[in-house]
Design a protein around this nucleic acid. Structure first.
Length: 290
DNA sequence: AGGCAGGTTCTTA
DNA sequence: TAAGAACCTGCC
């Protein structure tokens, strides 16, 4: 199906944005880049043509799941427009990051993914996450229409096979020890297992966290082993869709030091500081900072 | 071959 | 309250 986006939507930038680890470009013999995302126990393939998106899903599935996942409620163009004209760096960053959206990802998947992310580079994070899915997730089968879509767009069949959902807490808990050991988690393994245990036992109640305000949510996330300020902010921003969180990692730290020695104007961009963070992260990583 | 990667925890002063 | 070391693993 085809969907027209009124504002920003670029699968390439989202794949590279660092907010998600299960987006990727898949090999295709066609002229256009084809992207794939696994989320919510489903898989979707996408091609962008300007403002248009060619999607492998049905209209019903789009309306019932992907539309919300893409956060179509928010107008990112207007958020970009709010950038201070005098702020040269942020203006350029927002222009370069046009197409990034903050996805509405699953809280548990986001929590585990960012626990894994500490002291790892992005390819290593992706690799660990995929291994966990393959060991403990449920296999995702494509239906006829989706297979036909792949054929029509000259996508290698392999891109649609051996796909797995991100496991639930109980599925992670049920993993044989040797399987979890094979996910290259290193010292993060115990954090992951413990978070899964606590989610199963109810010591961590993600549904309850949904109802908390930003400040309460943040302090509750910090209680989780292996979760510090950075991981808690990322989980709140990407997993709970709290758009005002502003995770500070090594890249953002460099940006802040180089361009905002007097401090970043958080008051100005409330409640969308997290969106600005994404632009700054993306642009800062792509540019060489002094 | 040794250092480092989207941090957090633990120890020490 | 703050600085410093240790931590798994893979990759250059």
């Amino acid at each position: 199906m085809i969907r027209l986006f009124k504002d920003d939507m670029d699968p390439l930038l989202i794949t590279e944005s660092g907010q998600c680890f299960r987006w990727c470009e898949v090999p295709s013999n066609g002229k256009e880049k084809v992207f794939r995302v696994a989320a919510g126990g489903r898989v979707l393939f996408l091609i962008r043509r300007g403002q248009e998106l060619d999607l492998s899903c049905s209209e019903e599935e789009y309306d019932s799941f992907w539309s919300e996942y893409f956060d179509t409620e928010n107008d990112y163009r207007s958020i970009r427009k709010s950038v201070d004209k005098e702020d040269d760096f942020l203006r350029k960053a927002a222009e370069a990051g046009k197409g990034i959206r903050i996805l509405r990802q699953d809280p548990f998947e986001t929590l585990i993914s960012f626990i894994i992310s500490q002291r790892k580079n992005i390819p290593a994070i992706r690799s660990s996450v995929e291994k966990i899915c393959a060991f403990a997730g449920k296999r995702i089968e494509l239906n006829k229409e989706e297979k036909r879509w792949l054929k029509e767009h000259a996508v290698d069949e392999a891109a649609g096979t051996d796909l797995f959902s991100f496991p639930s807490p109980i599925e992670i808990l049920n993993m044989p020890e040797k399987d979890l050991d094979s996910c290259s988690l290193g010292y993060r393994r115990d954090y992951v297992r413990r978070a899964a245990e606590d989610a199963v036992s109810g010591r961590i109640d993600l549904d309850r966290l949904l109802s908390l305000d930003d400040e309460e949510l943040f302090s509750e996330l910090l209680e989780i082993r292996g979760v510090g300020k950075k991981v808690a902010s990322c989980t709140a921003l990407f997993g709970f869709h709290r758009l005002d969180f502003f995770p500070v990692d090594v890249w953002i730290d460099r940006v802040l030091k180089a361009y905002y020695p007097g401090g970043f104007p958080f008051e100005r961009y409330r409640p969308f500081n997290g969106v600005m963070q994404q632009y700054m992260f993306f642009y800062g990583r792509g540019t060489t900072l002094v």
